[in-house]
Design a protein around this nucleic acid. Structure first.
Lengths: 189, 189
DNA sequence: GTATTTTCCTAATACCTTTAGGTAAACTAG
DNA sequence: CTAGTTTACCTAAAGGTATTAGGAAAATAC
């Protein structure tokens, strides 16, 4: 009965890797147990339940993504910062589709409060420092940026625009150009 | 052994309603059977399997949404068309969250080909007729619009920006203003 | 070196999915 | 309008996942 050395952390990490391999919603307590060569019930000493596992993976992904954004944003401003931010998002989703999906999980208010969500919001707002927007336009712009990035990544990963002519890298560049132009020239109400 | 009169269509419709009530991923063959007061196995005369049910609901939602978009777009152009299109999307998601989620289901190439996806693409492109864009900028713009609409609706429904000051209706209007301005003034490469 | 905590186990319950094969209701022909 | 065929729904069964209760052995604490 040798012990494997399970911890909530190891399970979360393994769950994140599993998510990238098979998809976030295929992450299940059973297959995680199998991966550690351990009986299913054993995981319940470390996890409250299946939902708890998913929440932990989501929080992990949010932290990891926030760390990457923070690193990419350091020392940049204006369009440079905008592109860096956007590319981190997109690259993370491509590199870690399961974790990206996890990061979109609807969290309970408590979990959300303990998450890196606040850092994300702060950093998105930091991008706008290079542009000349005042409240409440800043908030509108933050929401627009979040929508574009999330929407684009989500549609691109889902195969939303795979078959048409211009490749998605080209579109991505032009979308960033467009957003930059828009922020520099934000329309009055 | 009175017959209830199950058909794939009735199951799909009921599945769509169920999705709106309990969420698309809570839609299960079991609860659908219970809703018709019928044994689970009976549904397998009408559905290939659980995935087939979800696909049928997705196709149904895509058709319904395309119909609404078509109706809203009739006789409109320019910003009018843009706003009409966007509002149909957003309203549909608010009114039928489960169906909207279903419409995002990743379809197999065959299912996608048989879906209303083509109509959606065509109608999105039709919006741009009121603006002065040529290929390949049109394609870039189509992708941007899709990203914004989907991203916004998705984040708004997920509670992404619920706690901050300006309400989301105000942001929505300003985002539409911004997109209109951007399309009228699309930056050269 | 004993006591305690913790990790992992077996066992059991409950639910969802899917297939195989049967019965009776509904349709179809003559 | 009855005989034959189709088909809607059923029972039975097997296999997977989630979760809880309670036990044994390994690790840790004193």
């Amino acid at each position: 009965m040798a012990r494997v050395g399970l911890t909530a952390e190891r399970l979360t990490r393994a769950g994140a890797e599993l998510a990238d391999e098979v998809g976030f919603d295929q992450v299940t307590v059973s297959v995680l147990a199998r991966r550690f060569d351990v009986k299913v019930a054993s995981l319940y000493s470390h996890l409250k339940n299946s939902q708890d596992l998913k929440t932990k993976i989501a929080l992990f992904a949010l932290e990891e993504l926030a760390d990457r954004v923070a690193a990419a944003l350091a020392g940049r401003a204006g369009k440079d910062a905008l592109a860096a931010f956007a590319n981190v998002y997109r690259d993370y989703a491509r590199e870690h589709p399961g974790r990206y999906a996890a990061a979109q999980l609807r969290l309970t208010p408590e979990a959300a409060a303990a998450s890196a969500g606040g850092r994300h919001a702060q950093m998105t707002r930091a991008i706008l420092r290079g542009y000349d927007l005042t409240e409440p336009d800043q908030t509108h712009a933050v929401r627009l940026l979040g929508s574009v990035f999330h929407g684009y990544v989500s549609l691109e990963m889902g195969g939303g625009f795979s078959h048409s002519a211009p490749d998605t890298q080209e579109t991505w560049s032009r979308v960033l150009d467009a957003l930059d132009a828009l922020l520099r020239n934000w329309p009055a109400p």
